[in-house]
Design a protein around this nucleic acid. Structure first.
Lengths: 226, 226
DNA sequence: TTAAAAAATGAAATTTTTTTTATTATTTAT
DNA sequence: ATAAATAATAAAAAAAATTTCATTTTTTAA
């Protein structure tokens, strides 16, 4: 990850940098609120570790300014001020986590991993189930080494299943997901599209099937081995 | 938000429920790890507040099972076990935050707000520029009170512009974004689609325009006021 | 076992999207 | 001012997605 550390105490800043660098992160340092804000705006970071008590403008102000300018990079506050009131304030103006100084290195790294993971998920771009991989931006459905393109409606429906892998989805559900609540589409629309998708799953030789639960709806499943 | 609280000490569970309900959240309770897992899998929650020490299966195990089954609902651990080792472990197996008991109600609520906010952002689903709002799941382009549907290619191109609001995008860029690097589409394809999009922007009466930078490419802009 | 209900599917019809082609308009360098 | 290059657009053609309709298949309950 690319991480910006904003901390005025040089030796602490360097220590954090060393810690993060060991974990293969790329770290930039800023030593005042003003510099920190400038770097955050002009660079692209996956995470900002931000001291609250800083020269010029403090960490809370930096956060407020960033969020106001639509920059939503995750922010981890790091500070000696650890009254509940401070914490609540920091989190409410747009911070993502709050760690008190002196902090434990392992905990810092774990919390960095959490924020990084969430970030990844945001930009994650595919849904997985068994041997299937659905690319959310190209609408291509991959299985083994092959892929097939899904139309918009096919995509809407299959991605709905992939996001609710354990649920039975009723035709009603699917209808309002793929055609919208106010559409006049009928159950047969769903049936036709389920049929389309099943055909594509077969063409891909996937072991994934769409099970019919009569009277209730459909659910993802796996082909009976035999 | 819809929140699942998994906590075996009934009076604590009830207290948390009351706290969250006051903040207008919808709260479901589970009192064992097994029940918690079952509820989490079968309901759709925005957040799970999870005690670590639970009867049957503990909170860490619940988390592991959920993540393994591709359920990525944010999880906030709440527990008396607050050694660094426990925290790090909890966060690394897929938890999102960790609060020690006894906890402060305001801090709990603030951390719930953070996780809810991130969740919103994850499912946030639109791109903005000036008077335009592009819905990424429906492909509808909104302006003032009207909207118009974009086709796949129109969407690919306009969303590319909206994600790069300050850049000039060359026809080459657009071609490889919307048609793919290996396609044999030509510049005129881009020109035709720019023309389609401009027509839709006009129909919407948007002040947004696509500027031509001759020989270089295109860029988003705003209609000259006069 | 059979009739009714629910679901699946094939195929045609319709609509929408995308591509192609030809023509017109604009900009720039000479 | 003009020719060449670049860009814009209209309209037709082709392809793809979606809807509709009719029929068949499957399941369930009587």
């Amino acid at each position: 990850m690319k991480i910006l550390v904003v901390e005025d105490e040089i030796h602490i800043a360097e220590a954090i940098k060393e810690l993060l660098t060991k974990e293969k992160h790329t770290v930039d340092l800023a030593h005042s609120g003003y510099d920190g804000y400038y770097e955050a705006v002009n660079g692209v970071y996956d995470l900002i570790i931000l001291d609250v008590m800083l020269p010029e403008i403090d960490g809370f102000e930096v956060t407020t300014k960033l969020r106001k300018s639509k920059n939503f990079t995750p922010i981890l506050f790091l500070t000696a001020r650890d009254t509940i009131k401070d914490k609540v304030h920091g989190l409410d103006i747009g911070g993502d986590d709050y760690l008190s100084k002196p902090f434990n290195a392992d905990e810092l790294l774990a919390r960095v991993r959490v924020l990084g993971r969430r970030h990844q998920e945001v930009i994650a771009d595919e849904l997985l189930f068994e041997d299937l991989k659905l690319n959310l931006s190209s609408f291509d459905l991959h299985c083994n080494d092959h892929f097939i393109h899904l139309s918009q409606k096919e995509f809407d429906i299959l991605s709905y299943f992939l996001k609710n892998q354990n649920s039975i989805l009723s035709k009603e559900d699917i209808l309002s997901k793929a055609w919208g609540y106010y559409s006049d589409a009928e159950f047969n629309h769903v049936e036709v599209y389920i049929s389309f998708i099943r055909k594509k799953l077969q063409n891909l030789n996937s072991k994934v099937i769409i099970e019919t639960i009569r009277g209730i709806g459909y659910r993802l499943g796996v082909q009976n081995a035999e």
